[in-house]
Simulated assay, not measured.
Amino acid sequence: MKLEGIEIIFNVLNETAEILQAELSCSYLEALAETGENLFHEDILQEELSELTTKRLKKIYSEIALNQFTNEQIRKGYQLAILKGMKDSVQPNHQMTPDSIGLFLGYLVNKFYENSKSLSLFDPAVGTGNLLTTILNHLTSKEIHSIGVDVDDLLIKLAYIGANLQRQPIQFFHQDSLQPLFIDPVDAVVCDLPVGYYPNDEGAQKYQLKAEDGHSYAHHLFIEQSIHHIKPGGYLFFLIPNNLFESTEAPKLHVYLQEHVHIQGILQLPLSMFKNQQAAKSIFILQKKSENVKAPKQVLFASLPTLSNQQSMGSILQKIDKWFAENKN
């Protein structure tokens, strides 16, 4: 992939976002959302700008045509601008899932749905949409109806604009995913689980995985909500903290999973990906129980090497192929 394409996209977004940030007295990320809207609509939508600023923006936008770039070039250029804006953001939930994980999750979704020409895909903590669009950009052989939900108004706006720029028709809902969701059951779920406590104790009451005392774990409730909204036999791909089964609430989670899903695999991500080893994560693959679905003969366990190590990754992919041949007939 040409770096020039990614750089051109980033430079246009960055320069115009900085102009809008100064003129509108807003944050860089808010200005990025504004300029993304302009770029998509090929127009300047902010009526309060000075004539000089409008002319400057028009000149910069006129030098770029989105249809000359691939979806991945647009996604990566936009992602770089978001990452720049996030450096100023202090919210810990504003963390983007690394590209290499998104690519690997795309590979896994494709593998588990090899025989499906179309599927519905749901991310209940979509954030800026980077994980979802990474997967969609690599599942081009399938017709995918995708849905993203997030409680953060700025993140969901950035996700919606990124999807428009990449011409990905994703349905977005701005709401708390742990409140009732008005969506049809989906074929598959992908989610980088938000880890922490859910502050809404009343809202947690309807969940089996609620805590008996104090706040419930949001990540446990997200797992339950996802299982509730997936079709029988559907697969769920979660990024989970490595210590998921070490908390005081873990026994309850274990019983719940045994009742509702078959565990398909746990793939531990390389520790080198995480600055803090306490924050290390694994990919957790589940299948919702259904009459015609059997548990795998054995669960797929693997520790992934550094994802850029092609030789080691090659042997892991062979291991996954072998597991599919033995367990997925």
Rank of each mutant, 00 (worst) to 15 (best):
E4I: 13
I6E: 03
I6G: 00
I8L: 10
V12C: 13
L13R: 02
N14V: 10
S25W: 11
Y28C: 02
L29M: 06
E30V: 11
E34R: 14
G36T: 02
N38M: 12
L39V: 06
H41R: 14
E47I: 10
E48G: 08
L49W: 04
L49H: 07
K55Y: 14
Q68P: 08
T70E: 03
N71Q: 12
Q79R: 05
Q79N: 10
I82Q: 01
M86N: 05
S89R: 09
S89Y: 15
Q91F: 13
I101P: 00
G106M: 05
L108C: 05
V109G: 00
N115M: 06
F122N: 02
G129T: 05
L132I: 08
I135V: 14
H145R: 14
S146I: 06
I147L: 10
G148D: 04
L154E: 03
I156A: 02
P169F: 11
L178K: 01
Q179E: 12
F182L: 09
I183W: 04
I183K: 05
P185F: 13
P185K: 13
C191G: 07
C191V: 08
D192M: 02
P199T: 14
N200S: 12
G214S: 14
H215P: 08
S216Y: 04
Y217W: 14
L221D: 01
F222G: 01
S226R: 00
G233R: 03
F237P: 00
P241T: 10
N243R: 12
L253P: 01
H254C: 11
V255W: 06
L257C: 04
Q258V: 05
E259L: 11
L271P: 06
N276Y: 07
A279C: 12
S282T: 13
L286C: 03
Q287P: 02
K289H: 03
N292R: 12
K297C: 08
S315Q: 14
I316P: 02
I320Y: 06
I320V: 11
A325T: 12
K328A: 10
